[in-house]
């Protein structure tokens, strides 16, 4: 009789203890997160070393990515400037040119038309070329009138702009229309390759971050051998033992992300003055863009996720080896 009552009590208490109050669960998580943080702080030198290595590994791809996106902004501003020069036939008068310009202005694929009259063309050529002496010996203006046509913004695809140029060439009084976009297309191809390179570098270094964290957490498991063993003895579940280690990994990654942001931002500060000086030489007001908020958050969260992944691997690999005896 007594035996049964105690047995019932035992199994009842077993099921009761498995249900954990969600508030306590949350508090536990918070405590574990903070105590893992405290653990990192207790060995500041080795923690900082690990965090710095992770930071550098993450800074490389994010720095490359930033560089690439800056170059893209630059090339986008070139794309916008890409215009079609429509050379009229030599015999076309300025009136014909103005008439044609008016007509083209109504074209939906064209946003802007500027007329360079034959006289303007000559003046400009004199100023720019330095051949003013020779030009003045000519009896007749050898230059045709030119219409500078700016394709509509929606037409930033080089292929469509090329079609427009072909169409314009076929117009009456037009000698030929030239779209000088070939180098822009090439540039696009090069940035596409660079983009792939950034991804390859990012994947490799992401893998490196995971490996660094696997190793760090592996050492941590070794250091906490006694604690893990005793925890298992007194009935700690695997997830209970895993939790602080996973938090450690996530912290390493998060701080690594923060360090990489710091490194990239510092490098940018170093570069921004010479870059804007260079841009000034090209009459451009181009300025280096920094890491925006979204990328910042992405950097932190990918750091934390890589950390979590690394510690998960280490825990899965090494925790089972520790069994109490």
């Amino acid at each position: 009789m007594r035996a049964t009552s105690i047995r019932n009590k035992t199994s009842a208490s077993l099921s009761r203890r498995r249900q954990i109050n969600p508030r306590i669960w949350l508090i536990r998580h918070l405590q574990v997160a903070l105590s893992s943080l405290g653990r990192l702080a207790r060995t500041p030198f080795s923690s900082l070393m690990t965090i710095a290595v992770i930071g550098i590994a993450l800074a490389l791809p994010s720095g490359l990515h930033l560089m690439l996106s800056n170059i893209r902004t630059l090339s986008n501003s070139w794309d916008g400037a890409a215009s079609i020069s429509v050379y009229l036939v030599q015999t076309a008068s300025d009136e014909t040119a103005a008439e044609l310009a008016k007509q083209l202005h109504t074209d939906p694929e064209i946003s802007e038309v500027r007329v360079i009259t034959r006289q303007q063309a000559l003046t400009e050529f004199r100023q720019m070329s330095g051949f003013s002496g020779i030009l003045s010996t000519l009896e007749e203006n050898p230059l045709p009138a030119v219409l500078v046509v700016k394709p509509d913004q929606n037409l930033n695809d080089p292929g469509k702009a090329q079609n427009l140029a072909t169409r314009l060439s076929a117009l009456e009084n037009v000698e030929f229309a030239q779209l000088d976009l070939q180098w822009v297309t090439r540039f696009h191809a090069i940035t596409e390759i660079a983009n792939r390179v950034v991804w390859v570098v990012a994947s490799l270094l992401g893998l490196a971050v995971i490996l660094i964290i696997v190793n760090t957490i592996r050492l941590e498991i070794q250091n906490r051998h006694a604690e893990i063993e005793i925890s298992k003895l007194i009935g700690a579940t695997d997830s209970f033992i895993r939790r602080p280690l996973l938090y450690s990994g996530a912290w390493y990654g998060l701080f690594g992300g923060l360090v990489s942001w710091l490194l990239v931002t510092l490098s940018l500060l170093l570069l921004s003055a010479p870059v804007s000086r260079l841009a000034g030489l090209y009459q451009s007001d181009f300025e280096l863009a920094g890491i925006d908020f979204n990328i910042f958050i992405l950097l932190l969260s990918s750091g934390a996720l890589l950390g979590l992944a690394g510690s998960w691997i280490a825990v899965a690999r090494h925790l089972h080896n520790i069994e109490p005896n």
Binding site: T10, S13, R18, I234, G235, T237, D238, F240
Partner: peptide, 13 residues
């Protein structure tokens, strides 16, 4: 295996 911890909570050592 996953139930071992709950068993050990019932056995003080």
């Amino acid at each position: 295996r996953s139930e071992i911890p709950y068993h050990r909570r019932e056995v003080g050592m």
